[in-house]
């Protein structure tokens, strides 16, 4: 399981959040991201070929890492029920397929999801803090979060205030994350940076550091409502930030790319990035999640291809 002990920063980092100016000079003192280097590294790692038994293991690992997500205005209790059934047993005809890690829903549907997942290890994640825009007062965000926690959410996916980020109010973001973290109690906190709205890799790196300093258990790329969502270079920048943070604090932060990961190939590219950047300690559902909905069907079709030898089709997996 994830460690949840209070964050104690080493001397070098302990006073970077003491004031707005200290935090600013820390964030702008981080080494710049080499855009070309990151993109080249991603392109290189994306060519890796994963076949046969390694592919079979990779598919099952990816399934175990999925946060099966539905975040639509038209979500109904019935939709949550079917989603939970799929989370428990992704392929009704094959009991050897593992369950997914979690289901991710809006906070008014947490109780429904919980009741459908009794007796399983599948977590319920709720999006909170005025998802997806994050445009609300802190009081509202705290209420939003405590509602989800009260209904039994195991994980909270919060969004940061991107407006504050672009205005340069970094300490406000830091304080907000800390306030939400307190409300979360034992629930894990994932902080969504919405990298599509942060514009540059340097900003992604800075936002990652703010979230990690403030006590996030996971950092997450996107809400899935904004394009571009989880691109591979952005994921790599965040993974590298996690690595740097781990070197300085010995604290392991989890990572969750979300949005736009639709195929087995996409998922594998992410797994390769994790393996090459953070190593095997992060290659498990406690430290790495993939936020997705349609990805699961593609993984199931690929899995079936490996077991039966024939290509499968969308008529043979459940419709979301």
């Amino acid at each position: 399981m994830l460690q949840n002990d209070p964050l104690v920063l080493p001397p070098l980092l302990s006073d970077v959040t003491s004031s707005e100016s200290a935090l600013r000079s820390f964030l702008f003192g981080l080494s710049g991201v080499d855009k070309v280097g990151v993109e080249q590294r991603v392109a290189e790692l994306s060519t890796r070929s994963i076949k046969t038994t390694a592919k079979a293991e990779g598919i099952d690992l990816a399934i175990k890492m999925i946060d099966l997500t539905t975040l639509e205005g038209m979500d109904t209790k019935g939709k949550i029920k079917t989603l939970c059934a799929k989370a428990r047993r992704p392929d009704p005809l094959d009991s050897s397929v593992p369950s997914v890690a979690a289901v991710c829903v809006y906070n008014d549907l947490v109780a429904e999801a919980k009741s459908n997942l009794v007796g399983t290890n599948i977590k319920v994640a709720a999006v909170a803090t005025a998802f997806p825009s994050g445009r609300a007062t802190l009081a509202t965000k705290i209420q939003d979060t405590s509602d989800a926690v009260a209904q039994g959410a195991d994980e909270i996916d919060m969004v940061i205030d991107r407006g504050a980020f672009h205005e340069g109010r970094f300490l406000d973001i830091y304080d907000q994350i800390q306030s939400i973290k307190q409300v979360c109690k034992s629930a894990h906190l994932k902080v969504i940076l919405e990298t599509g709205e942060l514009k540059t890799y340097d900003n992604v790196k800075r936002a990652s550091w703010i979230a990690m300093l403030a006590g996030a258990d996971f950092i997450k790329t996107s809400t899935g409502k904004i394009q571009p969502a989880a691109t591979l270079p952005v994921t790599l920048v965040m993974l590298q930030a996690i690595r740097d943070f781990h070197i300085q604090t010995r604290r392991m932060i989890g990572m969750k790319p979300a949005g736009g990961i639709k195929t087995t190939k996409d998922a594998f590219k992410n797994l390769v990035l994790v393996k090459e950047t953070l190593g095997d300690n992060w290659l498990n559902p406690d430290m790495f999640r993939i936020g997705a909905s349609s990805l699961l069907n593609d993984l199931l079709m690929q899995r079936k291809k490996l077991t039966t030898g024939a290509y499968s089709g969308p008529d043979y997996v459940t419709v979301d």
Binding site: G309, A310, Y311, S312, G313, P314, D315, Y316
Partner: peptide, 9 residues
């Protein structure tokens, strides 16, 4: 043979 066994054909 791959097309004949393909479930989406």
């Amino acid at each position: 043979p791959w097309l004949a066994s393909h479930e989406d054909v």
